[in-house]
Amino acid sequence: MTKKKVPFDPKSLKFLTAVSSAEYSKPTLKMGALIASVFDASHGVVYVGERASEFHGSSVNLTRQNLDNWNIIHPGLEVLEWALQELKKLSPENEELAKIQFNPDHVYEEDGRVRVMLPDDKGCRIELVLREGELVDQLRKEIQLEGYDLAIIGGSQNKRHLAHSILQYLPSSIFVLQKFNPRKKYKLLLLVDDSIATIKSIEWGALIAEKLGWPVRTLTVSKTKRFGAGYQGAADKAKAYFDSRGIEVEQFFLTGDPVRTFVEFAGDNHFVIMGASTLNPVKQFLFGSKPIKTLEQTDVPILIVR
């Protein structure tokens, strides 16, 4: 069951970062840790590995148990061990985190997943989880089980064709780190319209901008030259909200196809934040939605707030 959370209750937000390997997931994990610290959220790290065909599943399990006797750990646990070491490096000031030791023998199988027990975790709120199976299915199960508010997924795991499934079926906000470069200075680009989800995305955007010090732009796109009261009002409210928090914001109003305009404007130096679609799920399934199409077409990091 998904647990309902009050947004920005500092100790109640839960973020989940999906990692695949030490080779490819370093930027994802780094951003995941940064965002979790920005929101003071607890941080789960999940590795989703391939599941062996059911025909040979028991032979693979038998081999793995035998490998344990030789102190050779499951490849997924190796990735989680690496993730814990990386998290320690990213927060050298965190003494509590530094005390946590990874022990591959301290794992606990429950609800179709393997959870690494961290006995020395004194309030660091770190979870390390190993799952096997199809990516979207396993992430959905993990998010539902633990009630995560945000799932952070690397661009390599996005694989564009999964964009539809990720946005339609994962019951949390989604942050996809496509071509994310931790050394690059991004501008925060908020896509503003009159939907309910925009309000929440503005709140998330303001918090990120405050903590990271990134310049903020808002973009409102209308299909016609006339901007209705709803769009204008939403843009004004967004500006007022940022002003109230002392954050400077540049406003842009453009005309054209919304998705194409978002993508062209975002270029390669923006970090996009937009609200999730409020369309009926069946319509989204059949025709897609603005966030789905934007995610499919853009190459920049994108946060879709639900």
């Binding site: 062996a52 025909f55 040979h56 032979s59 693979v60 081999t63």
Partner: peptide, 15 residues
Amino acid sequence: AVAAPACTIIYSSGL
């Protein structure tokens, strides 16, 4: 990697 159990087993090493 799916045909024979031995092939699935070495594939599961991730190496």
